[in-house]
């Protein structure tokens, strides 16, 4: 295994305490060229995680706070009239960066949301008849408050599919909380943090993830899972092909982070909740229900061939 990945994870664990699994999930999502949605209450360390990942990999980092009056041009940028040259010139918005934290994405209007989501998908921005490439790697970490919070525009299901993973951070353990309370200020620690890997390495890892070996029996297992999600034992629509591809890539990425060159069933089981829960979530009047249970049901219902 690449020692730099190990040190990367170790470093991250020093700052965000007791969240090893979430850090790994976030990293596998990044290396699988996906975007990450963090769904949790305010103040749980979402921003810290995003900032941390950017710093550790030496990537540029921007943060956009989504509000109800946010406009697409606030994200993408706008053409501004330059009086010296007498012409319009484009002022790139905060999206032109490598890691972008879209904070409280469900507070903005659907119009602003879709501007971001389109950029995520296309990895480019088109304004005033011009297409501008976004930098590589490009990684969006969006956070949102649980849907039942007041003043939110919940993302439509189709938009959820664009996030490869959706994770929750959750409360820290008692031990971890004690260390947060007694330790140094996390924001200062973040500022003095040295990058562990370079952006080039990130691109290299992203290229290597799809080459992780997936054996026939494992593909069988993957497809059994997908078939089960589409069967009538699960309410609502099943996983889309994009979803199954996301499953595969994340599993490869997870195995890669673990230093292996082949995927094993545990890899799929490990990333399954994060990949499928937000896709199979089925909304009732009150918001979401039993998201964890779906992934758990999938895992426990499908035998490993």
């Amino acid at each position: 295994m690449d020692t730099s990945i190990k040190s990367l994870i170790d470093k991250a664990n020093e700052i965000i305490l007791g969240k090893d699994e979430q850090i790994r999930l976030a990293l596998s999502c990044l290396f699988a060229r996906g975007h990450l949605l963090i769904e949790d209450l305010p103040g749980m360390g979402k921003t810290t995680l995003a900032h941390l990942l950017a710093s550790l990999m030496g990537l540029n980092f921007n943060r956009i706070q989504f509000t109800s009056d946010l406009l697409p041009s606030d994200i993408i940028g706008a053409a501004v009239f330059n009086q010296d040259s007498g012409s319009f010139s484009f002022h790139p918005g905060p999206i032109f960066t490598q890691v972008i934290l879209a904070d409280e994405i469900n507070r903005a209007s659907p119009k602003a949301q879709s501007a971001l989501l389109e950029a995520m998908e296309e990895r480019q921005v088109s304004t005033e008849g011009q297409t501008r490439e976004l930098p590589e790697p490009f990684f969006v970490i969006a956070t949102q408050n649980p849907a039942h919070h007041i003043g939110t525009f919940p993302l439509p299901e189709s938009q959820y599919d664009r996030f490869m993973m959706c994770i929750e951070l959750g409360y820290p353990s008692r031990q971890a909380e004690r260390r947060i309370l007694t330790g140094r200020d996390r924001s200062i620690m973040l500022q003095t943090l040295q990058a562990c890997i370079s952006p080039e390495q990130v691109l290299d890892y992203q290229a290597r993830v799809p080459q992780v070996h997936v054996a026939e029996p494992l593909l069988d297992y993957l497809q059994d899972l997908i078939d089960f999600s589409r069967s009538d034992r699960i309410d609502g629509p099943g996983l889309s092909p994009r979803g199954s591809l996301a499953l595969l890539r994340c599993a490869q990425s997870w195995a890669f982070l673990d230093g292996r060159d082949a995927v094993i069933p545990e890899d799929i089981q490990a990333i399954l909740p994060a990949v499928v829960n937000h896709r199979l979530r089925h909304h009732d009047d009150l918001g979401t229900t039993q998201t964890h249970a779906i992934a758990q049901l999938l895992i426990e219902s499908v035998a490993i061939p």
Binding site: I264, P265, E266, Q269, I299, E300, S301, V302, A303, I304
Partner: peptide, 9 residues
């Protein structure tokens, strides 16, 4: 071993 239990687990 449960049918869904991965070998490593």
């Amino acid at each position: 071993r449960e049918a869904y239990e991965g070998p490593r687990d």
